[in-house]
C-alpha cells in the first residue's frame, strides 16, 4: 500500500475544523501550552531575577551562576518531567510548570547578573556619592540600566520554555506536543499528517514568541545600546540549553 504524502495529509488535517475546535483540539492545546509556558516563565522570573540582581549588586556568585547553567544543561528535560510528578508535587500541570521553570532559571539568572555587573562603575559611584543607599542604587540605577539584559534573558527563557513545553506531552501534561505524541501513537499511515501538522504548530509558536520578544527586547533597549549590547547579552545567554 502506498501511503499518502505526509504533507498532503498534514494540510488535510489542518483544514479539518473539528481538529481545531474539538475538546483536545488545537485551540485547547494551544491554550494549555500558553498557560503552562506563561506560568513557568513567571515562576522562573520570580526566583531568578531577585537572586540574579542581588548577586550582581553585591558582585559575588558569578561562578555559581555559570555552574548552575552548566548543570541544568546536562539534565534531560524528560527526567525532570517524569521525576517531579512522583514527588510531593503530585500529578497534573503543577510538576510540568515547575520542571519548565527550572530550565527557565539559568538564562534569566545569568542575564540579570551580567546586566547589573555591566553597569558603568562611574554611574554606581555617582549614585553612591549622591547619598543613595545600597538598595536605592540597585533600584534606581542598576535595575533600569540592566533592563535590556533582563529582556534578553526573558526572551531566551521564554522561547526555551515554549519549546520545551512540547515535551510535556510525554507525561500527558498537555500542550501542543500532545498532538504530535498522539500522531506517533496512531502510526505513520494514519498519523503522519497529524505529526507534521503538530510539529508545524509547535515550531511556528516558538518562532512567533522569538520574533515578538525580540521586538520587545529592542523596544526596551535605549537606541545607542541596541547593536552592541543586545548582542553581548545574547551571547551571555547562548550557553543555555534547549530542548
Amino acid at each position: 500500500m502506498i501511503a499518502e504524502d505526509p504533507i498532503q495529509q498534514a494540510v488535510t488535517w489542518l483544514n479539518d475544523p473539528l481538529n481545531w475546535t474539538n475538546p483536545g483540539g488545537v485551540l485547547d492545546r494551544l491554550g494549555e501550552h500558553l498557560w503552562i509556558s506563561a506560568a513557568a516563565v513567571a515562576l522562573g522570573c520570580l526566583v531568578a531575577w531577585p537572586l540574579g540582581l542581588w548577586l550582581g549588586h553585591v558582585g559575588r556568585g558569578g561562578g555559581a551562576v555559570v555552574m548552575i547553567s552548566n548543570v541544568t544543561l546536562a539534565i534531560p528535560t524528560i527526567a525532570l518531567l517524569t521525576i517531579l510528578p512522583l514527588t510531593f508535587l503530585g500529578f497534573g500541570q503543577r510538576p510540568v510548570i515547575v520542571a519548565l521553570a527550572v530550565f527557565a532559571v539559568p538564562p534569566l539568572l545569568a542575564n540579570a547578573y551580567t546586566g547589573v555587573r555591566e553597569v558603568d562603575p562611574e554611574a554606581r559611584d555617582a549614585a553612591r556619592g549622591m547619598g543613595l543607599s545600597g538598595l536605592q542604587v540597585l533600584r534606581r540605577v542598576e535595575l533600569p540600566l540592566a533592563v535590556p539584559y533582563l529582556a534578553a534573558g526573558f526572551r531566551t527563557a521564554a522561547v526555551q520554555v515554549v519549546a520545551t513545553a512540547a515535551l510535556a506531552s510525554f507525561v500527558n501534561g498537555g500542550g501542543l506536543g500532545q498532538i504530535i505524541s498522539a500522531g506517533f501513537g496512531l502510526g505513520m499511515a494514519t498519523g503522519g499528517g497529524q505529526i507534521l501538522a503538530g510539529g508545524l504548530l509547535v515550531a511556528l509558536l516558538a518562532l512567533l514568541v522569538e520574533v515578538v520578544l525580540a521586538g520587545v527586547e529592542r523596544a526596551v533597549t535605549p537606541r545607542p545600546l541596541r547593536r552592541s549590547r543586545g548582542r553581548a547579552a545574547r551571547r551571555a545567554a547562548s550557553a543555555t540549553g534547549r530542548a
Binding site: 505526509p6 522561547v159 519549546a163 512540547a166 506531552s169 505513520m188 510539529g199 508545524l200 522569538e210 534547549r242
Partner: peptide
Amino acid sequence: YTIPSLALLAFIAPY
C-alpha cells in the same frame, strides 16, 4: 536552534 526538538523530530520522522 529555535525550532523545538519535538517539532524537528516530527518533521523528520515521517520521511
